[in-house]
Amino acid sequence: MNAPATRRARSSSTAVRRPGDILFNGASLGSAVLILLILAGVAFFLVMEAVPALTAPAEEISGGEGFFAYVWPLVFGTVVASVIAMLLGTPVAIGIALFVSHYAPRRLGNGIGFVIDLLAAVPSVVFGMWGMAVFAPRLGPLYEWLSQNLGWIPIFGDASATGRTLMTASIVLAVMILPIITSVSREVFLQTPRLHEEAALALGATKWEMIRTAVLPFGMPGVIGGTMLGLGRALGETMAVAIILAPGVFSWNFIGAGNATIPAEIALNFPEAAGLRLSELIAAGLVLFVITLAVNLFARWIVDRRAEFSGAN
């Protein structure tokens, strides 16, 4: 009577296998593997549809000089817009995060935190419409001024009167990535060990010195990770740029007509595209995918590397 039970217990060291267990285990393992398959599928189908454009003779591609000549100005526009957005957005986002975590009263801080999270979910098409209808016209005169007084800097060339420029798109992108960087940074700033802060204050540090010596070093990996997330979103951001930017050819002048980004190029041309043009756009999408992938991997690498040095945890 006893023997089978003990044998069974010995044969499986963890638990008794039941149909329910097998089903549950199978379903969860299956979904996990399915995710890998989906990702592989994304890469596979994009490559498949992109191959015609990559192998086509140079003169059949838009512009007539091959795929590389077609795509590099787009890559340039995408990267420049995102980097400007990141440079503008990050300091402000860190400021807001510090305001919420260390300057504002706790109750107010929580409220602001919720509003910021909410804004991260505002659809990008709404940001685009706002940027086009409200923001761009206001920037026109400013570009005029920049062009007249700082015209010797290459990026401030002839101004566009409508304000529908790469610079406007970048500023709107900066506003869009603010909530992401802010919420990640706020989260890590709030986790700073209370003892570190109090120790700094007890040694006579002013509030800023406390933040500089205790809060920022502790939160740096988180801030960098958040920034890279924001950069990734800015790189892939489509609708805002597609609506705001009046696309044009490559130009160093960021406050005048010209330049385009990969996602906007796809969104603007895809609905009417057919044949090789379709394949070209998908190939451009593949390039975008590779760029964002590289940025994300780089971000992970930085966060992991910094995490080892952070003595706090």
Binding site: G236, I282, L288, N296
Partner: peptide, 23 residues
Amino acid sequence: IRFFVDVMTGIPSIVAGLFAFAL
């Protein structure tokens, strides 16, 4: 899987659309 879920988080939305269309 954790690594690839992270990678997936970074897929630009338009690329997801292109994937579905290509499929």
